[in-house]
C-alpha cells in the first residue's frame, strides 16, 4: 500500500458515498445514468469473484464488499425505489456497445485464458469505459448538478491516482500490469474534458453547463 493507492481507494469510496447520499437525501436520481451504474455493478461483480478464492487482506476484502454492495444498492435505488425520478429519456447509451467489445477484448488480450482471469480482465476493460453513458447523459442535457460533478470528479480522480500508484510500484516494487495500466490511462483520459470544466467552473461556484 502506498499513499497514491490509498488516496485512490478513498476517492473511489467518497464517490460512491456521495452518489448514494445524493440519491437518498434528494429522493431523486435525476441526472444520473442508470446504464453507467449497471455497468459498474457488472464490473465489480466480475472483478471481485476472487473474494471467494483469494484472501489478500482485511482491508482488501472490506473494500471489495463495500464496492459490490454499494453498486447494487445504487442500481436498486435508481431502478426500483426512486424509479419515477430516473431520467431514462436521456439515458440512451447502448450498454452492449461497451460490454460486448470489452468481453471480446478480454478473451483476446489477457494474462491467462481461465474463467476468473478473463472475467477480471473484462472488468478492467469495462470499467475504463463504464462512465461513458454518464458523460453522454451530461452532454445530452448540457448540464450537471454540483453534487453530480463532485461525484464524477472523485470517481475520475480514483483511477488517476492509481496511475501514480502504478508508476510508484514500477520503481519501488518492480511490479506492473500492462492491462490495468493501459485501461487506467484510457479511463482517466475519458475524464479530461470533464476535469477541465470542473476546475474552471464548478470550483468557482458555477454550475457545470456545457457550451451550447
Amino acid at each position: 500500500m502506498n499513499i497514491f493507492r490509498l488516496l485512490g481507494d478513498l476517492s473511489h469510496l467518497l464517490a460512491i458515498i456521495v452518489l448514494l447520499l445524493k440519491i437518498w437525501k434528494t429522493r431523486s436520481c435525476a441526472g444520473i445514468s442508470g446504464k453507467s451504474q449497471i455497468l459498474f455493478a457488472i464490473v465489480y461483480t466480475s472483478r471481485y469473484l476472487d473474494l471467494v478464492t483469494t484472501y489478500i487482506s482485511a482491508y482488501n476484502t472490506f473494500m471489495k464488499l463495500i464496492f459490490v454492495v454499494a453498486a447494487y444498492a445504487t442500481v436498486y435505488l435508481m431502478y426500483i425505489k426512486f424509479k419515477a425520478t430516473y431520467d431514462h429519456n436521456h439515458d440512451t447509451f447502448r450498454m452492449e456497445f461497451l460490454v460486448i467489445p470489452s468481453l471480446i477484448l478480454a478473451l483476446l488480450i489477457n494474462h491467462e485464458l481461465t474463467v476468473l482471469e478473463v472475467l477480471w480482465t473484462f472488468s478492467i476493460y469495462l470499467e475504463s469505459v463504464a462512465i461513458l453513458p454518464q458523460l453522454f447523459l451530461v452532454s445530452k442535457t448540457g448540464e450537471a448538478e454540483s453534487i453530480t460533478s463532485h461525484y464524477l470528479f472523485a470517481l475520475g480522480s480514483y483511477r488517476g491516482l492509481y496511475l501514480l500508484n502504478w508508476v510508484y510500484r514500477y520503481y519501488a516494487e518492480d511490479h506492473y500490469d500492462l492491462i490495468a495500466i493501459v485501461a487506467g490511462l484510457v479511463q482517466t483520459v475519458l475524464y479530461c474534458d470533464f476535469f477541465y470544466l470542473y476546475i474552471t467552473k464548478v470550483l468557482k461556484g458555477k454550475k457545470l453547463q456545457l457550451p451550447a
Binding site: R5, D9, H12, D50, T54, I56, N60, M63, K64, F67, H111, E112, E117, W120, Y162, N165, H175, D177, A180
Partner: peptide, 10 residues
C-alpha cells in the same frame, strides 16, 4: 503465483 500479486489491488 504471479496472479496473486497482479490482483492485489481494487
Amino acid at each position: 503465483t504471479i496472479f496473486d500479486k497482479l490482483h492485489d489491488e481494487l
